[in-house]
Write a protein that binds this DNA or RNA. Structure first.
Length: 473
RNA sequence: GGGCCCUUCGUCUAUCGGUUAGGACGUCAGAUUUUCAAUCUGGAAAGACGGGUUCGAUUCCCGUAGGGCCCA
């Protein structure tokens, strides 16, 4: 019988949930779900000065937006400091750790010396076996792990494969600082152990840390978890993802009109693949996810592809569902006023009717909203430059004649309107485009819109005629 | 500086030693067309470099170069 899989996502609440963190969370979530296990959330708030409530809220919101639910209550690392200290002192009592009184100056010298000799920069263990009685007064010691000097530390990583570190490269790491604060290295190991984490899935920037953490596990006599170090996401220039690129919070993408399912799909395919498959439902993703198919090289964030995937999801989405997303999105672009003065039901009805034509032309919710503005615009419409130029004397005259024809239309629907207008164009010896474009300009204020007959149908007879008269009167 | 990781079209990737090196985004051309999209068809586009191992390397090994991460 194998124990249930427990993964964890441990964000520091010093900012928003960025793209890289979101993908790490996704992979943890996918693996846990695929194994019928759990994903825990740990808030690594030991840096009290930089941790904020606001950041915690944003991280929760980001995970929820992406549909990455965690199991149980979040663990706050700062609350475990006492436990971490006890573990460190246990190691001290067992002779597996020691007090080190080396000053900052000495450390700096050590570094300079190592560097000059072309060796790894690390602590030389000068207090490792020294008599504590020689301790200088007035210096609060740090507690260091008495790590193995010889041999190797081997990590059988689920993504990186077998990675070997010579123990001689790893120095006696600090467990507790002079002020008694546990180090990151100690806290992570103790918390992961206490939380029962079986699989540590994180960015490969932690690969070297993993070796050091293994030494702590060993000293403590604890089983280490499985490790899976996934490659980082880089910016378009191949360098670390920064604010210049995509290191925005996921909520920034939400506000740009990206769908969580699209973001999830895109992120999953960054560094992971499943044959030639590009699109995955959550279920398919969970079923197909496997560390063996996770690559080891970093991937660049490409918003163009994200946008394409987003457009795909918008087009595939059920119209009624899209209407709800549309409405929910309005506040995010400060466009709530767009539909004021209209009944909620009528707004929904009109959007639903227009959606098939609108969603084909938008690859973000923001673009979708923009493209729908003409529906709710107040008469007389303001025309953009091109539309204005299109509506010259000839065009207006033509529209005037069209009004008369349209007044005779008995049933106002796409089919009838199309037949009527095609006939009208023929009668005047015009191509359909010659009448459709002025019509579009008059009805939408733009030269770009869904099919013109759809526009007329969605606008309705009364509004259509009104907008036409605005241009011919 | 040391250690570790990485390297297939511009980008994300497939390839379990033998393929015309495949797909996707982007790009170009065409079809369609009432605009713009969407859609369809087609094109250009890749194994960093140098050595090995092998009948045969993108694939395995070594080195070089480049990039990244950690340590400070």
């Amino acid at each position: 019988m194998t124990s249930p899989v427990i993964t964890r996502f441990p964000p520091s609440p010093t900012g928003y949930l960025h793209i890289g963190g979101a993908r790490t969370a996704l992979f943890n979530w996918l693996y846990a779900r695929s194994k019928g296990g759990k994903m825990l959330l740990r808030i690594e708030d030991t840096d009290r000065k930089r941790s904020t409530e606001d950041a915690i809220e944003k991280i929760f919101a980001g995970l929820e937006w992406l549909g990455l639910s965690w199991d149980g209550e979040p663990v706050f690392q700062s609350l475990n400091a006492q436990r971490h200290r006890e573990v460190a002192h246990g190691l001290l009592d067992a002779g597996l750790a020691y007090r080190c009184y080396t000053s900052q100056e000495e450390l700096a010298q050590m570094r300079a010396k190592a560097r000059a000799q072309g060796r790894a920069v690390r602590y030389d263990g000068r207090w490792r076996d020294r008599d504590p009685l020689e301790a200088p007064a007035g210096i609060a010691p740090v507690i260091r792990l008495k790590s193995r000097l010889k041999g190797e530390t081997v990590i059988e990583d689920r993504v990186q494969g077998r990675v070997v570190f010579a123990n001689s490269e790893l120095d006696d790491l600090v467990l507790l600082r002079g002020d008694g604060a546990p180090t990151y290295m100690l806290s992570v190991v103790v918390d992961d152990h206490d939380m029962g984490v079986t699989h540590v899935i994180r960015g490969d920037d932690h690969l070297t840390n993993a070796a050091r953490q293994c030494q702590i596990y060993e000293a403590l006599g604890w089983d280490r978890p499985e490790f899976a170090h996934i490659p980082l996401i880089h910016g378009p220039d191949g360098a670390k993802l920064s604010k210049r690129h995509g290191a925005l919070g996921v909520e920034a993408y939400r506000d740009m009109g990206y769908l969580p399912e699209a973001m999830r799909n895109y992120l999953a395919r960054l560094g992971w693949s499943h044959g030639d498959r590009e699109f995955f439902t959550v279920e398919q993703m969970v079923a197909a996810f496997d560390f063996k198919a996770v690559g080891r090289s970093p991937a660049r964030f490409d918003i163009t592809k994200l946008t394409h995937i987003n457009g795909h999801y918008i087009r595939e989405m059920d119209d009624a569902e899209l209407v709800e997303r549309f409405i929910a999105f309005l506040p995010h672009m400060n466009a709530s006023a767009m539909t004021t003065g209209r009944g909620k039901d009528s707004v929904r009805r009109q959007l639903l009717q227009a959606m098939p034509g609108l969603k084909l032309r938008a690859d973000t919710l923001a673009a979708l909203v923009e493209s729908a503005r003409f529906l709710f615009a107040e008469r007389p419409l303001s025309l953009d430059k091109k539309a204005d130029r299109l509506l010259d004397e000839t065009a207006r005259t033509l529209l005037g004649e069209l009004i008369a024809t349209l007044e005779a239309v008995s049933s106002w629907n796409v089919e009838t309107l199309e037949v009527t207008i095609r006939h009208f164009a023929e009668k005047h010896g015009l191509k359909l485009g010659s009448i459709a474009q002025p019509l579009r300009a008059a009805l939408t204020g733009s030269t770009v819109s869904p099919g013109i007959f759809d526009v007329m149908a969605v606008l309705g007879c009364e509004e259509t005629m009104g907008r036409l008269r605005d241009r011919t009167g």
